[in-house]
């Protein structure tokens, strides 16, 4: 029997997660935390390092690393080359990467249409 593909809908991450970001030199980190434990597997599956790199294309200069913290229902992303040199060197308003968190929450992912928000 052919497996039917489950119907999906697009949901912005802000409905599924909260986040905090900070800096280490020219790297910004974003911790992405599932709003409900049940959302974590979806985040882990859909919000890949490659997907985040695409999201921030043209905004960051380096690559993206991802780490998993299933114990906290959280993912941690390192966005390299994100801060125009970082710290005191940077000319950016967000020189310390404080709002990369909410910039990531703008991303949309496909979730099952049946998912309750």
């Amino acid at each position: 029997m052919r497996k039917t593909r489950e119907a999906t809908k697009k949901v912005q991450l802000v409905k599924l997660a909260h986040a905090r970001s900070g800096d280490k030199g020219d790297t910004a980190n974003v911790g992405l935390i599932a709003l409900k434990p049940g959302f974590y597997p979806l985040l882990a599956k859909k919000v890949t390092a490659a997907r985040v790199a695409r999201h921030f294309k043209g905004i960051i200069e380096g690559d993206v690393e991802r780490f998993e913290l299933p114990n906290l229902n959280a993912l941690n992303f390192l966005l390299h080359g994100a801060l125009d040199g970082g710290g005191t060197i940077s000319l950016k308003t967000d020189a310390q990467g404080k709002v990369f968190s909410t910039a990531l929450l703008r991303m949309e992912i496909d979730v099952p249409r049946s998912l309750k928000l």
Binding site: A19, D23, K24, G31, L72
Partner: peptide, 25 residues
Amino acid sequence: TEQLVYEMGDPASYITPDVVADFTS
């Protein structure tokens, strides 16, 4: 949890002068 992930690098290897802490635990 928001504070735990703040300025986090590799969570399994949080290096300080005293220890290497594993935030995934």
